[in-house]
Computed example of a mutant assay.
Amino acid sequence: MAGVGYALNGVALDSRYCRVTLGSTLFAGVSVSRSKVSAPFRHGTIPSGVTPTFGERSATLKVAAFGAGAIGHDTGHGMDSSRLARLCTTPYPVLSRTVNGQLQQAVVELASLEADDGGTVLDRLTPFTAVFAMPQVWWRDPVAYDRPVAANGTAFLWPAACRWAQPYWTRWEVEPNNSTSLLADFVTMWIGEPNNSPSLLIPLSSGIPDGMFGDAPVTDPIIRLPKGVSSASVTDPTSNTGVIWQGAANANAYTYVDVGNCLAWQSTADHQWTQSGTDVTGGLDYPAGGLLQCWPNPVDNGYRLTSKITGSGEPLLVHVRRAWW
């Protein structure tokens, strides 16, 4: 697969003397837990209406180490099998892949590491297979962004994939009002909070590619509710999951809802993404569809959230990392 490279604990696995061939890393295996219900005169399953749940996934690396240092400790060959074995057995391995320039990572656990039968030629080639469990299921962006979401309506968390049919604004080539004008061939947008995050420049010719902002469900956002809010409901219109908070309004503090850890706290700090301040977890609840999972819309790949809050009309701020299959 072009444009994909792998690393373990930040050390590249693809080098002059080491190669990774794509096994299940191309698309790590998925098994879905389903609720099966039997009923008279009915065959198969009865849909429960609950969002699918995914068990632990696994990623398989098929690695071949080349050269005289493949089985020994020849440091001139960098990524020999001994060094790679040490990386695989570190206490807290982090597997990462770079897909067309985008770094994606997963905290993993080593499940097995073994040499492949029939392929080893001492001092020339040592192929083996490493299998890692992915307890958190999805590949994740190592960076979290703070995304504003309008209150009391449905708004994008991450924008949908789109294409622009033609350029629709112009820019000066040189001196304003005194030079040839050019049709602009790009648009820009904030990737996080306006005026407080990196911006993106997106060519008009390509638009927003499908999967640019992720293509897997986001299960652990931290939501900052505006000051003075006494109740809030945030739901995902794609999966019908959500999170609810209700409690005493505080005009001087934000309320933070940590979906992944089922925690809530109030703090006067405007970017307090770890628990601190006053614990208000007792006000947490979720609807019948289950705890919030923000899924991409299957048609346009956009991530949306629907919110309803009392006590304020200010936007919500969502601390979130992109997720990929």
Results as ranks from 00 to 15, higher is better:
Gly260Met: 11
Arg124Tyr: 05
Val137Met: 13
Ser81Thr: 04
Val4Asp: 05
Val259Gln: 02
Ser31Asn: 12
His271Gln: 15
Ile46Glu: 02
Asn240Asp: 15
Ala253His: 08
Pro237Gln: 02
Leu22Gln: 09
Pro167Thr: 14
Ile222Gln: 00
Gly67Cys: 06
Ala155Tyr: 11
Arg163Glu: 08
Asn177Leu: 15
Pro315Ser: 11
Leu305Pro: 14
Gly242Thr: 03
Ser197Gly: 08
Pro176Met: 09
Ala251Gln: 12
His319Arg: 13
Ile46Asp: 00
Ala251Met: 08
Asp146Leu: 14
Ser33Leu: 05
Pro127His: 00
Thr75Val: 07
Ala251Asp: 12
Trp245Ile: 06
Val234Gln: 03
Asp14Met: 02
Ala65Val: 09
Ala65Pro: 04
Pro226Phe: 08
Arg224Trp: 03
Gly290Asp: 02
Pro296Lys: 01
Ser31Cys: 05
Cys18Ala: 15
Met212Gly: 00
Ile244Thr: 07
Leu113Gln: 04
Val50Thr: 12
Val229His: 00
Met1His: 13
Ala12Cys: 10
Leu200Phe: 09
Gly290Thr: 03
Ile309Cys: 05
Ser267Cys: 14
Pro194Tyr: 01
Pro221Glu: 00
Pro159Thr: 00
Ala28Trp: 05
Ala150Pro: 01
Tyr303Trp: 08
Thr129Arg: 13
Asn9Glu: 11
Arg19Gln: 14
Pro148Trp: 06
Thr170Phe: 03
Val30Arg: 15
Ser233Glu: 15
Phe128Val: 07
Asp80His: 09
Val243Leu: 04
Tyr254Thr: 10
Pro315Leu: 09
Gly192Asn: 09
Tyr17Val: 04
Asn177Asp: 14
Glu193Tyr: 12
Gly49Ile: 11
Ser33Asp: 08
Val131Glu: 01
Pro47Glu: 07
Asn250Met: 07
Ala248Asp: 12
Gly72Val: 02
Pro142Arg: 12
Asn100Arg: 15
Leu95Ile: 03
Val107Leu: 14
Ala130Met: 08
Ala251Lys: 06
Ala85Gln: 07
Val32Cys: 06
Asn177Lys: 06
Cys88His: 05
Trp158Asn: 03
Ile202Lys: 03
Asp279Phe: 12
Asp300Lys: 02
Phe156Trp: 14
Phe186Leu: 06
Ser181Lys: 15
Glu56Pro: 04
Ala144Lys: 11
Ala12His: 06
Asp80Pro: 09
Val143Trp: 06
Asn301His: 08
Arg147His: 06
Ala151Val: 10
Thr180His: 05
